[in-house]
Amino acid sequence: MSFILPSLTYPYDALEPFFDEKTMKIHHTKHHQAYIDNANTALNDLPEFSNLSVIELIKKLNHLPDHKKNILRNNAGGHTNHSLFWKYLKKGTIPQGSLKDAIEHNFSSISSFKDHFEKTAMNRFGSGWIWLVKQHNMLSIVSTANQDNPLMGKDISGANGYPILGLDVWEHAYYLKYQNRRLDYIKSFWNVVNWDEVHIQFNQT
């Protein structure tokens, strides 16, 4: 079984003016596709792992041969992270219901949650991701380097929990529009969060 590029449920310009069409198209068809191609190549001679879903695979990185571990950590991780990311994007939704209650319980307010998320994103040196994760019915904000994902476990990614929202802070996600203005990009994210999908993930974990 080979990994394939998931189709977006919206056109590349659907998130304008916050996420621009050109970046979205390159991000999806070039960067994400490259992670998939590299992961598939690495799995060619690993039949015992080739039928796993990508999430099952990244949970078993420690079972991989040493010479395959890093390439699949990076590329299966990149495929996982981006597949989640596209689902988290949509204009015109707001946090509500049990998700809103949980955010307010864990962070005191939606505003406080956003401030914490933004500060964590700004403090991520270099490339990586910022996640809202659920663990033991609690929400927390964590950051992972490069293409690591909390599902890889704390020993590998430095974080635990099931990601229900994530933001890509690699420069390829924003540089064409925002150049070095990472904070502007991070703040624009709140205009395109698909809170309906986050709510679904929150209730399923």
Rank of each mutant, 00 (worst) to 15 (best):
N74E: 14
G77A: 07
I110R: 00
L151W: 02
A39E: 01
S140F: 00
N70P: 13
P11L: 02
T144E: 05
N81H: 13
T41K: 10
K22Y: 08
H67D: 14
Y88K: 10
K25W: 03
N106E: 00
W170L: 15
F19D: 10
Q201C: 12
N123I: 04
Q204T: 14
K177N: 08
Q147F: 13
S83Y: 06
L89G: 12
S188M: 11
A145G: 15
T41A: 12
L167I: 09
Y175R: 15
W131P: 03
N75I: 04
D20C: 08
N137E: 01
S108Q: 14
Y12R: 02
I200H: 11
Y174I: 04
M1S: 15
D155S: 14
L167D: 00
N62H: 12
K134Y: 00
S188V: 09
S140T: 02
N62T: 13
K114S: 08
H67Q: 15
I103W: 06
P6Q: 05
Y185F: 07
Y10L: 08
L99R: 00
E171Q: 14
L176W: 10
A76C: 09
K187R: 15
L8K: 10
H32S: 04
Q96V: 11
I26C: 10
L89F: 09
N62W: 07
I186E: 02
I200Y: 13
N149T: 04
H79R: 13
Y35I: 07
F117T: 00
